[in-house]
């Protein structure tokens, strides 16, 4: 049972890491294009668009890196889950307002902001939330606090 849980945690970690790294590299390397995508949503005033989009791109990249290497897994999973919940809300909002623009989620575009994208992010949220509760230790360099099984924590 414990091995199965560790296996699911490892698979979830690598999956979420892959999603975030794939999503982030283009945003980091082409900050102007991502700032444009963020501005499309009109959620933040224009003077905040550049800084918020740049920080978000790097946040995604760092989360991906932390999850790949298994460093501070629970903290990274909390961030990734929070971001995914935010993205889901954003996609629903975009769907409600009839937006037809690209969601700006992944390189190359082709993903319109809306309900379908919200559903996709909901799928990504499942393994991310799993990691919040079961960060796991397999192939993790420094999983951080909360990664040990509860029974071990009680004994120490």
């Amino acid at each position: 049972m414990k091995a199965l849980r560790e296996l699911i945690s490892l698979a979830s970690r690598l999956f979420v890491a892959g999603v975030f790294l794939y999503a982030a590299y283009d945003k980091v390397w082409q900050p102007a294009a991502f700032a444009q995508a963020v501005a499309e949503y009109e959620l933040v005033p224009l003077w905040l668009v550049n800084s918020s989009s740049a920080v978000m791109a790097w946040l995604e990249l760092l989360l991906g890196a932390l999850l790949v290497f298994g460093v501070a897994v629970r903290a990274a999973a909390l961030w990734s889950s929070g971001l995914l919940v935010f993205f889901i809300a954003l996609m629903i909002y975009a769907g409600l307002t009839g937006a037809g623009y690209d969601c700006g989620c992944f390189p190359g575009g082709g993903h319109a902001a809306g309900y379908e994208t919200a559903l996709r992010d909901l799928v990504f949220l499942v393994p991310s939330l799993w990691l919040v509760f079961f960060p796991g230790r397999w192939l993790a360099l420094a999983p951080g606090r909360g990664s040990r099984p509860r029974e071990e924590r009680f004994l120490s």
Binding site: V28, W29, Q30, P31, A32, A35, L46, W47, V49, N50, S51, A54, V55, M56, A57, W58, L59, L61, L62, L63, L66, A72, R74, A75, A76, L78, W79, G144, R145, G146
Partner: peptide, 30 residues
């Protein structure tokens, strides 16, 4: 892990600022 969460955010902000300040494709603050 509040401290780790905060460190991740601060590290992201620092990387974003450094990258955009020194790379040719960097964007300004506004």
């Amino acid at each position: 892990p509040w401290a780790a969460c905060l460190i991740i955010l601060l590290a992201s902000a620092a990387c974003a600022w450094l990258f955009n300040a020194f790379m040719p494709q960097g964007i300004g603050l506004t």
